[in-house]
Design a protein around this nucleic acid. Sequence first.
DNA 1: ATGCGAATAATAATAGTTCTCATTTGCAAT
DNA 2: ATTGCAAATGAGAACTATTATTATTCGCAT
Lengths: 143, 143
Amino acid sequence: MDKPQPEHLKSAGLKSTVPRLNILNLFKSGQERHMSAEDVYKHLLASGDDVGLATVYRVLTQFEQAKLLVRHNFEGGKSVFELNQGKHHDHIVCLQCGHVEEFYDAAIESRQKKVASERGFAVHDHSLHIYADCVRKNCPHKR
Amino acid sequence: MDKPQPEHLKSAGLKSTVPRLNILNLFKSGQERHMSAEDVYKHLLASGDDVGLATVYRVLTQFEQAKLLVRHNFEGGKSVFELNQGKHHDHIVCLQCGHVEEFYDAAIESRQKKVASERGFAVHDHSLHIYADCVRKNCPHKR
DNA sequence: ATGCGAATAATAATAGTTCTCATTTGCAAT
DNA sequence: ATTGCAAATGAGAACTATTATTATTCGCAT
């Protein structure tokens, strides 16, 4: 269906290889927005692309450095990645079903900058995760 | 020097044992505010208290559940604990020296609640970590 | 087509944490 | 004070996520 798009890899200084294209396309396909290394590995195997788990880890890290992906460290120890679409956002994670919802709040962002600069810090980065339950009895995000 | 204070353990429904008292007192001593399991383990061994690493992990988790301690998952994968002193706060972590500074911003807190409730989530918890550099050339928080 | 440096796959190794289970301990009831 | 027993501990094995090692393979400029 969708052809590989090596331009993004080349412009990131990465030579275009089969595993890299497969991983990038998996994220671009939009099937699942947030995936761990294990998730990516399983998706690729399931769709017949033979790949090594170590390669998945390496490529995800490279993509993070190339700013193609963003890494998140949610509770639970494992890193989760998502396509970097330019617009920063924070996350609400449902503790019942694991569903991740994104949000952006300008007021929160600007207060953070203020707090940090008042204390003499130059902000690199931040992570804001709200851990919550879907309110309704039948959690709408069952997996 | 400082006597054990079993009241806190009892009221948390935990029977007062030697390792638990030692760990609680270590945090209360205030020497170091933020410690990983490994940190706690080393401190205890260094002060002559023989303890098992598995016990440290177990007790830290129990103390978290009993709300005696708060767990933080900063970048880097390992959990860090601090004494729960009632007042919630967020953290700025200096990427140069690892120093952790605490802050509280009412505006950020209330915006978070608003964002979550608008989306039908009941907030359990949140974590906000700002990763930054101390602005000055000579980072004031050298370790 | 071919050669070389980079990338890969398989596997071993590591770090952080949890589990298992035999032994010990806290403490309530004698 | 002793005893009994459930709960807690310690030692090490096991587990999970991730990184390192290395021989083989691949992308791509020539």
